[in-house]
Every structure is written in C-alpha cells, then in structure tokens.
C-alpha cells in the first residue's frame, strides 16, 4: 500500500527498553541464564499460566468467546474442572506467575529477521531489563483459558512460521526436476 496517514501506530512501551536487536537478545539470553536456577515444575507452571493468560485475552474477541462458550457447554469443561480439582492442578497453577509467552515468541521470531544480529552478538552482552512491577502475579487459572490459549498460541505459531518463510523470499517450487534417468549400462556382470 502507499504510505499515508495510519490510523494506528505500533510503538515501544513507554518507560521501557524498546524492541531492538540488543534488547531482544538480552531478553532471550536472560531467560536462558535463569533456567538452571529454576525447577522444571516452575518452568512448566509459568508456561501453563502464560498460555492461560493468552487464552483469557483470546476470550475477549468474538471468535474466542464463541469457542470458549462452546467448550463451556460440553463435557470438556466438566472433565477439565474435575481434573483441575482432583489432581490439585488448580492449587499448583494458582501459585505460578504467568510467563509472557506470546511476547517471547514474537520477540524470538523478530530476532530471526534482524540484519544486525552478528554485530550485536559481538558486542558486550546487555543486561536484560527486569519485569519489576509489570510482573503478572499468580492467580487462579481456569482450565478453559488454558485450552483456548493453546488454540490461540498454535494459530500464532503457525502463522508466524509461515510469515518467516514468506519473508525469506519466493517459496520453493512444487516440482523440482530430477537429475535425469541414468544411462543404461551394458554388461553381463552388472545385469
């Protein structure tokens, strides 16, 4: 489209480090650095709570709301609630801070398209900005939000990978010519 006056601008968060190659590398490196210090259960719990947060946001849209209400009417809701309560998943996840999985996915994908990654990695590492007061505290996690979050995240992941491939140029051709049939060899031994 031709440049004009946009209705909406997508900008950096105020009072925060903007989305640059250096800050995205720092965020990814920071996540990797804390991994050895946390248990697997904490990681799984924070990711699950993060996916549920994506589901809660998806439920605000018309499409997400219809899907959630359909799930809520049937057996998935009843059985999920039963599993949640009987296996203590509700108590466990209620103590977990939600990991910002969608932003992390988008930031990591954006790193695959930057043109100054090599130079940035050669520089002294930048300390990642800390979440601080923006941290989403632990709270109750509804099983249907987790289900809806999986749906939303799966769609996002699929679209993102396709967009990354499209950004890399022309798609690979559907038919690739072969090297040609091998010339017949005449000989008794090889027959």
């Amino acid at each position: 489209m031709s440049p004009g006056d946009p209705d909406v601008l997508l900008v950096d968060e105020p009072d925060r480090a903007g989305r640059t190659t250096a800050s995205l590398v720092a965020s990814l490196a920071g996540r990797l650095a804390v991994l050895p210090g946390v248990s697997g259960a904490d990681v799984v719990g924070a990711l699950a709570a993060g996916v549920a947060a994506v589901g809660r946001e998806a439920a605000e849209t018309a499409e997400g709301r219809r899907l959630r209400e359909a799930l809520a009417r049937g057996r998935p809701a009843t059985n999920a609630t039963l599993l949640w309560q009987r296996l203590g998943i509700d108590r466990w996840l209620a103590t977990m801070p939600a990991s910002p999985v969608l932003h992390q996915l988008r930031n990591d994908a954006a790193l695959l398209l930057v043109d100054d990654l090599g130079e940035t990695l050669d520089l002294p590492p930048l300390l990642p900005d800390r979440t601080g007061g923006d941290a989403v505290g632990p709270g109750p996690v509804d099983p249907l939000d987790l289900v809806l979050g999986l749906w939303a995240l799966a769609r996002e992941t699929e679209a993102l990978v396709e967009a990354l491939a499209a950004a890399s140029g022309e798609p690979a051709p559907r038919v690739v010519p072969g090297a040609g049939r091998a010339a017949p060899v005449d000989g008794v031994v090889l027959r």
């Binding site: 006056d5 946009p6 209705d7 909406v8 601008l9 997508l10 900008v11 950096d12 968060e13 105020p14 925060r16 480090a17 903007g18 989305r19 640059t20 800050s23 995205l24 720092a26 965020s27 920071g30 996540r31 804390v34 946390v38 904490d42 108590r91 209620a94 103590t95 977990m96 801070p97 910002p100 932003h103 992390q104 988008r106 930031n107 990642p128 900005d129 800390r130 979440t131 601080g132 007061g133 923006d134 941290a135 989403v136 505290g137 632990p138």
Partner: peptide
C-alpha cells in the same frame, strides 16, 4: 504454604527478564 509460594513466586517474577512489547497508539 500457598500464600508463601505465591509471594515468593511473585517476587521471583519481578526479577525475571522483561519481554519487550508493543503498544498500540491510535493516531486517528
């Protein structure tokens, strides 16, 4: 135990690396 865990994880969450995000700013 639940409240203690919730408190500790909230504090832990504050020191986690921030994921830089995007803000929508209406211009019209």
């Amino acid at each position: 135990v639940d409240e203690t865990l919730r408190y500790l994880r909230r504090v832990q969450g504050m020191f986690e690396p921030h994921a830089p995000g995007t803000v929508l700013r209406p211009d019209a």
